[in-house]
Design a protein around this nucleic acid. Structure first.
Lengths: 190, 190
DNA sequence: GTCTATAGCCTGATAGAC
DNA sequence: GTCTATCAGGCTATAGAC
């Protein structure tokens, strides 16, 4: 029973943390606020996570994991065109589905640093993505294009300016922009 | 003489703040660090700026002002193509010239919030830019394109991944990507 | 008008009782 | 697994020296 309660508290904690992070930012969210919202004390929070950074990492972890899997899957294609298509589609899908998290992730240095220090390291992921999009021996133009594509899609997708746009429309438009940037042929739009 | 000293301290303070912010992030820079680096006490810093947020605003202010002027200048053109060209060129120029500040600006919520609450308000500026790029009565596709362009250029320009690229090359590539995204005709590349 | 000294309150973090 | 107690360090504020 205690194990069940603990598991539940941990889960509730992460959910509440994400909610508060989204509302006040990581920096603007104190452990006290999390503890109060959960009806426990700060020290109780510290039982589950040694540091605040550990909480931010845990909040971001699912997204990073999915991204990691996506890169592996995309890299399995033999033709580079297929790699690019797979990565672009999957990346947009990830961004759209985790809009809230993305908005946080891209605007909060706390989360940024947390992820950077995470298992695989975000720099590694980013480098891999640029490599997939621009090719292994890309020139500056190609790398700039890849960077603009990735960060542009991520920032725009997480932007509050597009919060009112439904998932399907946003997904379609982001993929469209990405394909245009990366020089992929246009798809027919259902 | 005291007036001169004060002006000098204020200027030195802002310069030192920018330097420390760039190195440790806004969050990671304490008033104590700024004070120590200047050889004064925390209270002296507090004399010039009531809050830490006021410092971040003051650090960002020149960039915001330049952006504001750019928007006014770009809006003066009669043809929308000229408006887009002017805004894109100027925006890229701004990003490239203030690379350090941009990297900070786009990755630190402290700065973000400071600017959002700033005089003209960043949201207003962003809305104006989207309006200029996508047109006054733009559909979702146009607004997504504009957002991806702006945020992509800003993020990529400030990214450490391109810190090694010289200004002129970066400027050229960013404008190139922007023109491609916004459907502007290609320019001859000297 | 410019700065120092000092103190308040809050945060992240630790130690140890229950 | 959760609590109380406590600490160092951060931002903010005031009083007062010069």
């Amino acid at each position: 029973m205690t194990a069940v309660r603990a598991e539940d508290t941990r889960t509730r904690l992460l959910g509440m943390a994400l909610q508060l992070f989204a509302e006040h930012g990581v920096e603007g969210t104190s452990l006290q606020m999390i503890a109060d919202a959960l009806g426990v004390t700060k020290a109780a929070v510290y039982y589950h996570f040694k540091t605040k950074a550990e909480i931010t990492e845990a909040v971001a972890e699912p997204g990073v994991r999915e991204l990691d899997l996506l890169l592996v899957a995309a890299a399995r294609h033999r033709r580079r065109g297929a790699q690019v298509d797979h990565l672009l589609d999957g990346f947009v899908e990830l961004i759209v589905q985790h809009r809230v998290l993305v908005a946080l992730f891209s605007s909060d240095p706390g989360l940024n640093r947390a992820i950077a220090k995470s298992a695989h390291g975000m720099d590694g992921l980013k480098e891999t993505m640029i490599g997939l999009l621009a090719g292994p021996d890309a020139d500056v133009a190609g790398r700039v294009t890849a960077l603009v594509t990735l960060s542009g899609i991520a920032m725009a997708g997480g932007s509050p300016d597009l919060a009112g746009v439904d998932d399907e429309t946003l997904r379609r438009e982001l993929v469209d922009v990405g394909r245009r940037l990366l020089g992929r042929p246009r798809r027919s739009r259902g």
